[in-house]
């Protein structure tokens, strides 16, 4: 695997908290290395010794199934030791501060911390108090860089390059850490971004002037190379941000008849878990255009690549 020595050539930051921590070249390096790991995942024996003797702590302060599983499996495939820390079983219930919790863990010599927390910025607090690396697995509505990397990978693998791709993102932009990270990564790689969502789910202040938005799904998907759906959380309806799921689906649901306006080999993506019949219709999710399950495999491969880039020798 010739790409493996990229670590010597390119200096990586110690933590991955937002995509701002990575240059375009570093992102490409992670993607290229991800491809090598993806090949390993298709072998009969999927385990490699790269992280043998390293310890990875999975610190999940809010529930997660998919992301946690993906990180855990990526670490196991690379022969790392894993320790799990989740808020429900931890001493945080006893009102211990994040700082104290993390300092205790650091005394156990953990090399990489994978952190998920409902409050934006917590990975920075943790990074300030530990000697290892922090990889952000999602902090509130702030950032989810490994999801963005896997999304970029999925586009890069299919199209060869992200520059100039028309990417349409549909759904709850305002409260989404995935969108914040995807926008940051896609802009860095030169994609054209269109957002489609009602005003109540759109940030009142534009994050970047290069991002366009529309309220019309037909316009939004026109000539799109990629359409990305986002999960509509039930609580948005309860807190009066959208009327209800029926109306939402009517105006902003991803339906198969819309796809005829898109590019002919359009790719349908979704970070999961999907709500069939709300933000995406079942026949779209199951169509030949959908790469939703492929994204999960890519998530595993790119997380292996991220571990590889961020672990210290």
């Amino acid at each position: 695997m010739g790409g493996m020595d990229c670590r010597e050539n390119k200096e990586m930051r110690k933590h991955l908290i937002t995509l701002d921590d990575l240059s375009k070249e570093q992102i490409i390096s992670i993607l290229e290395q991800g491809k090598a790991f993806k090949e390993i995942l298709s072998r009969p024996i999927k385990k490699i010794p790269t992280l043998r003797g390293k310890t990875i702590g999975l610190l999940f302060f809010e529930p997660s199934t998919r992301t946690k599983l993906s990180f855990e499996l990526a670490a196991k495939r690379m022969s790392a030791d894993i320790v799990n820390f989740s808020a429900s079983t931890s001493s945080l219930k006893k009102n211990e501060s994040i700082k104290d919790t993390v300092m205790t863990l650091d005394a156990m010599k953990i090399d990489i911390y994978v952190v998920r927390h409902p409050s934006p910025g917590v990975p920075y607090i943790i990074a300030d108090h530990i000697k290892g690396s922090v990889i952000n697995a999602g902090d509130g509505a702030h950032s989810h860089p490994t999801q963005a990397i896997l999304d970029l990978y999925t586009m890069w693998e299919r199209f060869g390059s992200i520059k100039g791709l028309n990417v349409t993102i549909v759904g709850d932009v305002k409260y989404s850490r995935v969108v914040r990270s995807d926008i940051s990564g896609l802009l860095k790689m030169g994609a054209n971004i269109t957002l489609c969502t009602p005003k109540t789910l759109l940030p009142r202040y534009v994050i970047d002037a290069r991002v366009r938005h529309t309220f019309d799904m037909k316009k939004a998907v026109k000539d799109a190379d990629v359409i990305m759906g986002l999960r509509m959380q039930k609580e948005r309806q309860d807190s009066g941000i959208i009327p209800d799921e029926v109306e939402y689906n009517h105006f902003f649901g991803l339906k198969s008849h819309l796809l005829e306006h898109a590019s002919k080999d359009v790719m349908i993506m979704h970070p999961g878990p999907i709500n069939r019949g709300i933000e995406i219709d079942g026949e779209v999710a199951d169509s030949k255009y959908s790469v939703i399950n492929e994204q999960v495999t890519n998530g595993l491969a790119t997380r292996m690549s991220i571990f590889y880039h961020f672990v210290e020798n």
């Binding site: 702030h142 914040r180 009142r204 534009v206 994050i207």
Partner: peptide, 15 residues
């Protein structure tokens, strides 16, 4: 403050 900064940080803003 609600503005570009709060949107970037993903924190709820005070308009």
């Amino acid at each position: 403050n609600e503005g570009v900064v709060s949107e970037k940080l993903g924190l709820p803003g005070i308009p």
